[in-house]
């Protein structure tokens, strides 16, 4: 019962984060929201007794992908500023 409630709660969190990521104006917030989706997905995998998948999702989805998106964002901004000058 507790597990089901937690699963539903995490699913609601990820749906809310997905909608937020689409409708927010700031790209950084969208990237962070996609990281939140991965994080809640990894907890859901852990509750579904798949710790291997949960580890992969937490490290790659929430960690590396978010950081790579942020780096790409930084580079895009740097090139834009270079053009404006």
């Amino acid at each position: 019962m507790f597990e089901t409630i937690t699963l539903i709660f995490l699913g609601l969190i990820s749906v809310a984060a997905a909608i937020f990521a689409i409708y927010t104006k700031r790209v950084v917030s969208a990237v962070i929201a996609s990281g939140v989706i991965s994080l809640s997905a990894s907890i859901m995998f852990l509750l579904a007794a798949a710790p291997d998948v949960a580890m992969t999702e937490a490290t790659i989805g929430a960690g590396l992908t978010t950081v790579i998106f942020l780096y790409a964002l930084k580079h895009i901004r740097a090139s834009r500023e270079g053009k404006d000058d």
Binding site: P51, D52, M55, I60, L64
Partner: peptide, 17 residues
Amino acid sequence: SPGGGFQGGVVIASGIL
């Protein structure tokens, strides 16, 4: 235990990050 080469490698890469 849970985990393996891929997970451990990504953890090391995040430390290097």
